[in-house]
Design a protein around this nucleic acid. Sequence first.
DNA 1: GATGAATGAGCATTCATTCAT
DNA 2: GATGAATGAATGCTCATTCAT
Lengths: 222, 222, 222, 222
Amino acid sequence: MTGADQTPRATPRRPPRKRPDAAARRQAILDAALAVFAEKGFAGARMEDVARRAGTAKGTLYLHFKDKAALFEGLVRTAADPVLGMMEAQVAQFPGSTRDLLVLLFARLHGEIICTPRRHIVRLLIGEGERFPELADFYFRTVVARGQDLLRAINARALARGEITSDAALRFPQLIIGPFLTAVIWIDLFERSEPLDAEAMLAAHIDVVLRGLGWRDEGVGA
Amino acid sequence: MTGADQTPRATPRRPPRKRPDAAARRQAILDAALAVFAEKGFAGARMEDVARRAGTAKGTLYLHFKDKAALFEGLVRTAADPVLGMMEAQVAQFPGSTRDLLVLLFARLHGEIICTPRRHIVRLLIGEGERFPELADFYFRTVVARGQDLLRAINARALARGEITSDAALRFPQLIIGPFLTAVIWIDLFERSEPLDAEAMLAAHIDVVLRGLGWRDEGVGA
Amino acid sequence: MTGADQTPRATPRRPPRKRPDAAARRQAILDAALAVFAEKGFAGARMEDVARRAGTAKGTLYLHFKDKAALFEGLVRTAADPVLGMMEAQVAQFPGSTRDLLVLLFARLHGEIICTPRRHIVRLLIGEGERFPELADFYFRTVVARGQDLLRAINARALARGEITSDAALRFPQLIIGPFLTAVIWIDLFERSEPLDAEAMLAAHIDVVLRGLGWRDEGVGA
Amino acid sequence: MTGADQTPRATPRRPPRKRPDAAARRQAILDAALAVFAEKGFAGARMEDVARRAGTAKGTLYLHFKDKAALFEGLVRTAADPVLGMMEAQVAQFPGSTRDLLVLLFARLHGEIICTPRRHIVRLLIGEGERFPELADFYFRTVVARGQDLLRAINARALARGEITSDAALRFPQLIIGPFLTAVIWIDLFERSEPLDAEAMLAAHIDVVLRGLGWRDEGVGA
DNA sequence: GATGAATGAGCATTCATTCAT
DNA sequence: GATGAATGAATGCTCATTCAT
């Protein structure tokens, strides 16, 4: 701790344009790709636009992703994972009622997906999924299946706690997630025609679906 | 300056041209378009494939539809209308309980859309909608808005008859239709990964949502 | 919606790409375009032929010119300017008699245009001009108007010097340039039917038109 | 002369749409073709437009002309001939001075061509001539060569009568016709940029060129 | 003869991908 | 590693021409 502390005191003659490390570069590309794919769809997106938006040259894209499809896959791969991971963690150790848990989770879905460019990924996948079967499979495994497990766990817990009586959503977790999907789609396609208060809708959904599953405020044992 | 202007051109020939009336021809094109668009998406669909599948020459397509987008629009335009019309008629004069009505309608949606290539149209629209705002608007006006009116009418009737107590689905018809949308998407994207018994799911949905809206078997007056 | 959007596309290869600088490339394209347009007319010219002749790929054309029309315009734009500039310079500082000046200028027109593929540009413009009004306007401004100014200046000088007495060609410079145009057209259309000694014709024209304007060898003051 | 005279007293139930005989039909097609070709050029003209304008179906065009090129040729063939014939007749028996003859002929060229859609034919031929060598040859034989003969005859007569002294225009009839061509082109391309008083220009041309050829009012012998 | 629906060759243009620099 | 000029396969659309009616 004695000598000079000038460690990062480089000697840059030219503007200290620190070469962003590969990871940052890659993320910039993914961000750009999300924006462009979201606006134009997979086929309509031009690699050149992605490059320009990412602030790189076209060729650079190919240093990070084998081709356009790989870029799309990278997008899907990276976008959903963190949100889901966060939610899984929360469910695992949530102490409160299932209602509160659902409220929390839907708030997350709203804040992290519906209100975010990420929602486009959902729509993109719906649109292009059949053309990229492997991608759909990948998405199923890494996102959908995990989401289902999560919802099933929640339902199982609620049943076990006597909060609900129906196993309908255990058998069909789609009943829980359906309105969320609908909201995502609506925002992108019909918001202009008829605005949707997604937050209010999801709140109503929680009320309806919980009641529909036989909700009792305190659980049977309470 | 698209297309050619060269001088000595083409020279048609052989196939014994018959003339099915224009309407039949048009329908054949629409059928072919549905198949091709469904498989490849809008951008991926080649007009030549549509033509071949319709049993016509490429040029013939353009006698019926101004361009590829118009063909897509024609598809959307013609596919949804009949189903919706049928459902509107049924709702207007349905004598029984709202539960029976919903069962009937979802059976129709299942039989006429989910089990039919028509379901692809829903998915296509979701995927391409943002790129064709007019088409999304058109779809909203001719399909979505009508569907919403229908669902609202059903909910209003159920409330009036004392069958349900919540107006949640009156405010958000999306709660009713959400699981149907989810089923449509699931079938196309994830059926291979995990089959879905859509019929059972929709039955469960009716149970849950009606109960969630405060269902009483006979209505208050019973 | 022109052009394709398919997914797995092209795969360039072989030819050992060198990089002549952009200007040379552009000039090669213009040269090729002149040849092809001259032979086939605007509509009949195929971009592919231009590319092949320029030794580039089709796509390269579009790196230099927005579309076929822009290529045509580029042709017109670059071809006339140098010749005219040269002539303007000469007129501005020509010391000798107007007759000698005209002889010199027509010699230039003969050598630089009639005997050159550039003459095709004149003919092309005549043929396509009405279809490209902006191009005709551009040509008028950058070539025709300048040419007229030049001819008017010459006539004014000749009148001032007392070499001629008539202002007919001051009012109608077309009288001076008409036979040149006729020669250009003749060479392209009728040379095969009846050869024309353009040089001799233009010499005769100078004689006739100067005499017709009241030529006096030394000017009034002589 | 006894019996009824009701020969053309057909029994038309439907509107007496007398079938225009083939010649009228053909002329209608040619008129339409002139209009369309003039506006769009050869390549840009669509047979369908010609048909619509002629009030016939597309197929009918092919009953009168083998193909598009034949239609174009028919146009050129029929348009120039009458004017030229008229002029030949006039020259053959014109009693007055050569100046008066030229005034008369240029008046005709102005009235029958410059002020008429026929002027477009001249321009079309210039533009497309190289692509239709046979047509250019045909035009040369039936129009240009005859025109030259006519001009040579006039010059020879004028020389013989001592009205002029130069044989320049005998050797190069183009000197006489050049400004007319220039006017035709100008009207189509540049009229918008700078209007041209073609009549005045041609009058000036006659003055200049006759004086340039050594004009003497009465001829030597007078 | 007249019609116009059908045909399909032909071309302008785009854009994913490569690779010399 | 980064660049972006060059490539050329791929496809939407046009329109001269035919021929069944």
